[in-house]
Amino acid sequence: MDTQKDLSATDRCDRDIFSISELFHENTKLRRTPDGLVLGGKAPPSTPEVHYALRHPWKRYASTARTRLPRPLDPLRTPIELVIRSRQSVREFSGTAISFEQLSYVLDLSYGTLGETLLDDGVAKRQRRVVPSAGALYPIELYPIVFQADGLQGGVYHYQPEENSLECLQLGDLHSTVNEMFSYPEVVAQASAVLLLVAIFQRNRFKYGERGYRFILLDAGHIAQNMYLVATALGLGAVAIGGFLDDKLNEFLGLDGVDEAVVYSVAIGCPLV
């Protein structure tokens, strides 16, 4: 192995010896002792706890109006290699509406279900999903904020994958309210929708402890990449946005920001040609 030091940006910058992120990363590492024990992990939960979590991997707003998303949708015909090579972050949108069907494609193919599979007891079932998730626990919930979509009123929705539906939380033109919650409001201003990725931390942490936070962020990345690829295949633009005012956005969705919080967002729309 080449032991020559690889100089990077970190070697040219002062290091923060009190970095919280560095401490977190170091203290969530898994290590194996000489006698075979794994340190840094969490004691495994009981089988009934795990089975319950696997069978209830989504949130439900029971009293809200629901809008069913169309299914089945026509297969997308663009070759996957072309989609991957064409994918890029689009930061300028035309402000025109996307279709209800296009929004349905993005949600269904980014975080939808694929049918049931049996658990290890051979009796209980869980839903398979279109993305991987640590332990199949799926701690992310999707909240689309719709600005312009033909066939769907503007407002805040929650994506319910079990029924493939949108649960309506608030209707209205929310552009001015939402724009100020992002570091780059000009990017959001002309988007057709912003898809918020919200983590329910205990859904993952009960099994993996503090290391589960790493897995939650990885889950968000899997979903966001699917959003990029599906948007690209539909001729839409997408851009992932990590710059947002956490407390403002959490409060806007009615989240406490501790047990549940926004961890990522993706704006989609028609590219400005």
Rank of each mutant, 00 (worst) to 15 (best):
E101P: 05
S89V: 05
P75T: 04
L236I: 04
T78H: 12
Q170H: 12
A224T: 13
L229K: 07
V194K: 02
L69R: 08
S21G: 05
N226V: 02
L76N: 01
D120G: 11
V258K: 12
A189D: 10
V262M: 02
D150M: 03
L37T: 11
V230K: 04
E116R: 13
V188M: 01
P144D: 04
F100R: 07
R68L: 12
R66C: 10
Y228S: 06
R211Q: 07
T3K: 00
H175V: 07
P44M: 04
I84A: 13
L39V: 12
A193L: 02
R211H: 09
P72M: 08
Q4W: 06
N164V: 06
G122W: 06
R129D: 01
A224Y: 03
E92H: 13
V187C: 09
R77V: 09
T3F: 01
F201T: 01
Q4A: 06
Y184L: 11
A193N: 04
P34G: 02
G36R: 08
Q160P: 00
Y157D: 03
E22G: 11
P79C: 02
K29T: 10
D120L: 11
S19I: 02
R203F: 06
E186A: 13
D256N: 07
R60I: 07
L107Q: 09
D256M: 01
G257R: 00
G172E: 15
M181S: 03
P75F: 06
Y157W: 03
A240N: 06
V263I: 12
E81V: 13
G95F: 05
R85I: 09
G155Y: 02
D247C: 07
V198G: 00
G115M: 10
R60W: 09
L218T: 09
C13N: 12
E49Q: 15
T78S: 12
F93R: 00
A231R: 05
A189E: 11
P44E: 15
L236H: 00
S63K: 15
I216Q: 05
T64F: 07
D35K: 12
D246K: 13
Q4S: 10
Y61L: 05
P79K: 11
C168V: 09
M227Q: 11
S192K: 00
F206G: 07
A261C: 04
K207L: 00
P34V: 10
H25L: 12
F24S: 08
I268G: 01
L249S: 02
L197C: 07
Q160H: 13
H51N: 15
G212R: 06
K59L: 09
V273H: 14
V187E: 13
Y228E: 14
S133K: 08
L195I: 14
V230F: 04
D120S: 14
G257K: 01
N250K: 04
S192L: 01
S176L: 14
E162T: 08
S8T: 04
F252S: 06
G135E: 07
H222S: 08
N164T: 11
S86G: 12
L174F: 05
N250E: 01
D247T: 13
A43P: 08
T64M: 08
L30D: 02
T3W: 01
V90A: 00
S19V: 01
M1H: 10
Y143D: 05
H56R: 13
E92R: 11
E162K: 10
T47M: 15
P161K: 02
D11V: 02
C270Y: 04
R77K: 15
T78F: 09
T28H: 08
S86A: 11
Q202C: 03
G115E: 06
E116Q: 14
Q170V: 12
L171F: 14
P132Y: 01
